[in-house]
Write a protein that binds this DNA or RNA. Structure first.
Lengths: 210, 210, 210, 210
DNA sequence: TATGAATGAGAATTCATTCAT
DNA sequence: TATGAATGAATTCTCATTCAT
């Protein structure tokens, strides 16, 4: 009998390990030898599970999507107030900070390297999912949520480029303060009527989200 | 080929031509041969003007900074109203859309490739310069200006990854509408006293910039 | 898969299956994985029966020799006339056409790959055996028989390189016509005295066999 | 100014050097490193002149054909008697013995390796050219000439596989003796009338060429 | 016995860089 | 100053072979 290995399970394990390495250094700056060495297998093993370096990238992109991205949404669904939901969001934004950076870098690498794939659609899906989740959970219009997503993106990028000048964690805290003022944090969901203040705020702040 | 007498002038010309190629494909995906061929010189000539591929990157980073980025500020200095200034900003944001994308990609490549260089400081300078210019010209607090810069960054990135879903030009238009509501567009500058509306708005919008 | 109890018997079975694959593609162009897959076993099994790829080649060479090559000779021994013997020869030449091609290719591969083996002697034995058999059965001098063997070799090679231009089967038919004229086809063997005609013919045709 | 090199001339020089190496060892048994080392250049240089290992093979096949193969025919054209022409043929057969072996091995390698090429046509052309040249120069029917070609092929192959048992040079001598008897060696060409003997012989020997 | 996952040396190929002209 | 031929280290990938199960 052969060595007992759950091929698919192990493949995912390898992908997981590849992810941070690839993102940190960039697709083009990691050699297969390096990758194998850092993971702790031989190059041959890598090629046993993936037909090519490019394919690792592609599979990684898929894997990362289906695995890590959406996990946190379930955490907010049952929470009664927006303030509490926002707490979870902020917590997750911090927790996943590096992950989002990596994802962003990965997306850029995908864009530049992989020709035969609809990278755009993948990112659109991600953007939509995240935007819709925020709109629903935080009870804000989609446009506001999209703006929030865009702002998060900018934050992640800036913090990545200037980690000491604009540390990511601080940026998240700042954003939290903004949102506390801007969002209908005192609403209990699902609430049919929104408070005056709240509505007014949304109108005033409409710009943020339009 | 004309004999370019001014060595330095020609070097800049070459850098200019390298810029879009490097950004579009990414540092690692351009070979010196390709670069030379697209520019229309030999690899030997490239090495006559630059000691290494990495150095082209570095010089390009410097060149791009000192040359293109700040040019537009002078255009707004003499304008009397914020609305007019905003017009110029929006126009420039559109005009330079691709350029900013490239700059962003370049910065990311720099971050990943060039070890012996304070890339962070360069990007901090850029962020500060842009933020300060916007704060001054649009008469808003620095924090607001920084938030605007971060949002621009997010916009550029999202539009780059999903050019068909969120086209950059449309995003700029949307942002313009937001800013028209949020900014003290009717102020005539330099105004010593800020109008009530304006102040109120800034307070209200504080979140955007905090 | 049935449990083959006789190790050696199974080894021969595997060799048999390897033969055409090896010859068709050439030693260097078949991987052990391919070989195993086409045979329907695992690489591990292959290595259970053969110590190395090279060894498969060597064993195959031996196996092929002792097994298939001489089989047909027994078929002609009892036939009374040369014409009848020739019939069997022609029939076998056609039947074994692909086999001879493979053998030839195998011999060339052996010559180029396997250093530690007297490939020459093996082929000399084969040449001698075939030549002697033809000389005896067709009642011609050894030199003529050797020439016939050489001609057969050329035919096989040419037909292999230009299968559409000089199809092997047609070449055999042509050769048969030649031999009908040239050989003492009407002799009944074993004849102690050779007929005049026959002798004359041999003299005339001496060239063919010298 | 660049290093002055006649690119095409040098390419041919490299092909020439590749030829014997490739033939001796076989396409699959020569590494690019080996090839480069034996030729005395770097692998980089090899790839400067040829896009791939396979392409070297293809170009070599073309080059060898157009360069070496047909050269000798011109040597016999002006000779008055068939005997003299035969002298030159024999001389060339001996001189080119190794070359023909190489060509044969190369053809087999081509057959097994190069898929995107009409290897058969190339070999048909060669066979036809050689056959026609012999038919014309030796004043024999095409069929006889083809048989002669096939026999030569067999000789080359057998001598290659058993260089000590059937040395090529001796085989050529033997063939020469055969041909002296069989061919109209005493004819003066272009002779309008063929001697009785001659015609008779051709008729008698028709078998050889059919 | 049989399997096929794992290995890593070695293959083809690329590409930044050098340098003779 | 400009060229592009030449270099060879480093890259991606292959494959014979080993070995735990």
């Amino acid at each position: 009998m052969p060595k007992i290995v759950d091929h698919d399970e192990y493949r995912r394990e390898l992908l997981q390990k590849c992810f941070s390495i690839f993102c940190r250094k960039g697709f083009a700056n990691v050699t297969m030898r390096e990758l194998a060495a850092e993971i702790g297998v031989s190059t041959g093993t890598l090629y046993h599970y993936f037909p090519s370096k490019e394919n690792i990238m592609e599979q990684m992109f898929e894997y990362v999507q289906e695995t890590n991205v959406y996990e946190f949404v379930s955490r907010t669904a049952h929470l009664p107030t927006i303030a509490e939901k926002l707490d979870v969001f902020v917590e997750k934004w911090k927790e996943y900070g590096e992950f989002y950076q990596n994802l962003m870098l990965l997306a850029i690498d995908m864009m530049r390297h992989i020709k035969n794939r609809d990278t755009e659609q993948v990112f659109i899906n991600f953007s939509n999912y995240y935007t819709n989740a925020m709109a629903r959970e935080l009870n804000i219009p989609e446009k506001q949520a999209r703006s929030l997503f865009v702002y998060l993106l900018g934050m992640i990028l800036h913090s990545m480029l200037t980690p000491n000048f604009l540390p990511y964690a601080e940026q998240v805290d700042t954003l939290r303060i903004i949102l506390d003022k801007v969002l209908p944090v005192n609403d209990v969901l699902p609430a049919t009527g929104t408070s005056m203040t709240n509505t007014a705020k949304i109108e005033t702040e409409e710009g943020l989200s339009r």
